[in-house]
Design a protein around this nucleic acid. Structure first.
Lengths: 227, 227
DNA sequence: TGGGATTTGTTCGTATGTATT
DNA sequence: GAATACATACGAACAAATCCC
């Protein structure tokens, strides 16, 4: 077997969460997942433990797992870290750009552009993968792991608080960034990335809809009624 | 039970690795660990999987686990990320310092100072904990998790490539950093942190000793002998 | 090269803890 | 508040792969 079973389950679940087939908050019982995927609970448990480590699911003792529902505050925390690490990515890449790498990035953006019209799901995924690709070019495995995790979690946040079906990134911003890197313009590349992440954060961290506003309204009415 | 068994095993193993009771490269057979700690293999496996996720052990399929032996290059990668994230920590703390927090930090440094004379093991641990404490004060849970992981792995690198028994950090540098934060001097706090991390990296990433130099020497001799 | 010993990977039954009626 | 239903936590045993002689 090329990859282990739990690896396959891990990937399947991760993809399902990021594609929003499993919405935030969905319960993930070991038994039904195992049955559905034709593996035992042990395998599912391993996959769940790994997803928990990456913050994609929440795992409560004796109460099982559910798809993570990061709060707005957690969302902000994630983007604060993401901005710092992706700034580091371009910082590192400034000294390591080659024609091959530029070509790789341009090819990816081409694909993004083509998918943009067709359908949103693939577009969102590709936009995230651009950031992971950038991280990969640094060859710093830890940085790659962190950025990958951050991009995944950003996607979750976007699904919770962002405007529905809005792509995470603008393709044009990716193009500008490649140009700055290719030109060796350190400061511009860095500024573009920071601006880009901030733009993503702004799109992803809109104020939560009615659900949260509701209790406050009720409380206000309650006070008027002497409650 | 307040914490799960695998949690306890995880903590025990982590501590053992960081305290160098388990040297880098040591094999970690599930069975003997379980026997030693009075738990079944299932529990040990869970703990090992988690340690693997944090990069403290290496886990090869069908071949078991051993304490991680990061290469010099991985070591450099880790410190590159650590510098960026700890710079972010002080950046955030600049806006959030309170007398309570300053007191907390000062108290910790006091303890560090006292342990410095007595024995090295505790001293190294406390030095790392200062950085974790700083991260904790940001209240950003993701940042806390990443910094904690980075500090742990730095400790492993120090044990592999650093001068033996040398403490990771100078206590005086910690004091200066607290002063800069207390004074609200953003730039100075940031510069001190970056300088501090670079100093740690320099102490931790010395050229590897004879082992690596040996093959080169042999090769040189070999060429002279026509090999 | 082969085969036994050892270690990991997996299954599944039982125990335990949580939620609900 | 107790009993029941349900899901997870754990462990013993089996299967498969690796190591070592």
């Amino acid at each position: 077997m090329a990859v282990s079973k739990s690896d396959a389950v891990y990937r399947t679940l991760k993809r399902a969460i990021l594609d929003q087939l499993l919405a935030a908050g969905t319960k993930l019982p070991e038994d039904s997942i195992g049955e559905r995927l034709g593996v035992s609970r042990t395998i599912v448990r391993q996959a769940l433990a790994r997803l928990n480590g990456e913050g994609l699911i929440e795992l409560q003792p004796h109460r099982g797992a559910c798809v993570a529902q990061p709060s707005l505050e957690e969302g902000r925390d994630i983007f604060v870290v993401r901005r710092a690490l992706e700034a580091l990515v371009v910082e590192i890449l400034n000294d390591k750009m080659t024609p091959q790498k530029i070509k790789k990035l341009e090819t990816h953006v081409e694909i993004e552009d083509k998918a943009r019209a067709s359908h949103a799901a693939a577009s969102i995924q590709l936009a995230g993968e651009f950031h992971v690709l950038l991280a990969n070019l640094t060859n710093n495995s830890l940085l790659i792991r962190y950025v990958t995790e951050l991009v995944s979690r950003s996607s979750l946040i976007l699904s919770l608080y962002g405007r529905p079906h809005s792509s995470e990134c603008g393709v044009s911003e990716h193009r500008e960034m490649i140009d700055a890197l290719a030109a060796g313009d350190r400061n511009r590349a860095r500024d573009l990335m920071i601006h880009h992440i901030d733009a993503i954060a702004a799109r992803a961290l809109l104020q939560p809809p009615s659900e949260d506003a509701f209790p406050d309204l009720l409380a206000a009415y309650g006070r008027e009624e002497g409650l």
